[in-house]
């Protein structure tokens, strides 16, 4: 069975401060995939993610989420797909004035249909799901470690039980052990909930161990797409330097 596309980018071009960051980005991600977006710093991965979730509009091209074009979407259909996706920002982006409980409850309360008892139950369920203790609930984000912030942010992203989740560098800033644990958590959630995962990552473990498909963003377009094995064979300086065993840095790979 061929599953439908959940994220589609067609000929996307993005202009930032007079520079064309994206020239012609084409991406199609199917339901149930774990898709990793890879690219050097400054290649516009985070920009593309922001465009996918509707925080930015590309200069040209089309981005569709669940078949809805962000450019043509109105408030009603935006609300409709709102609960179908969640996002984990790079630094967690928890609301620092709110406790962990309130942070996770925020998207639930925004629906204005659930009573507080149900909200409480759902928050506790999400806490357990992401491997957090109940005691964490009353803490402020400032009192949490980096790994816990990411877990709470993931719990918040999962609050509305989405089908699709965007992760921006989910393991950056975590120590190797916490990184491996977080990867295991994503894998487990993917299996349990059948999530589609779209992530930006540099983490080799996430790339090779978890991703079904990898897309490489360089020079303003997707230069390679496929499984890790397929992508490795593509002859491009960025890919060769990234996957080479010695990690030789070639000019241009780190600009």
């Amino acid at each position: 069975m061929i599953l439908p596309f959940v994220v589609e980018c067609e000929h996307v071009g993005t202009l930032v401060d007079g520079n064309w960051v994206h020239r012609d980005v084409n991406l199609h991600i199917r339901a149930g995939e774990i898709f990793s977006l890879l690219g050097g710093s400054g290649s516009g991965k985070t920009l593309l993610l922001r465009e996918m979730i509707g925080l930015m509009q590309p200069a040209y091209g089309e981005i569709r989420l669940f078949g809805l074009d962000w450019k043509k979407v109105d408030d009603k259909s935006r609300e409709k797909i709102r609960s179908r996706w969640g996002v984990l920002f790079q630094q967690g982006a928890l609301v620092s004035a709110m406790t962990v409980f309130d942070n996770i409850a925020l998207p639930l309360r925004e629906l204005h249909v659930l009573d507080e008892v149900l909200v409480g139950e759902l928050v506790m369920q999400k806490l357990a799901m992401t491997g957090l203790d109940v005691e964490v609930a009353d803490k402020l984000p400032a009192a949490l470690s980096g790994g816990m912030v990411k877990r709470v942010a993931l719990a918040r992203a999962l609050a509305l039980e989405p089908e699709l989740i965007f992760l921006d560098e989910p393991t950056s800033g975590l120590d190797p052990v916490a990184g491996v644990r977080f990867r295991a958590l994503i894998e487990q959630l993917h299996q349990q909930l059948g999530l589609t995962v779209v992530m930006i990552t540099h983490d080799q473990g996430l790339l090779e161990g978890l991703s079904n498909r990898v897309g490489i963003l360089a020079d303003g377009c997707i230069i390679a797409e496929g499984t890790v094995e397929e992508v490795k064979k593509v002859d491009h300086p960025f890919i060769q330097s990234y996957f080479s065993p010695e990690l030789v840095l070639i000019d241009g790979a780190e600009d």
Partner: peptide, 11 residues
């Protein structure tokens, strides 16, 4: 801290 983005993303 991207909190504004996160709020906007949550609608």
């Amino acid at each position: 801290t991207q909190e504004l983005d996160a709020l906007a993303a949550m609608g």
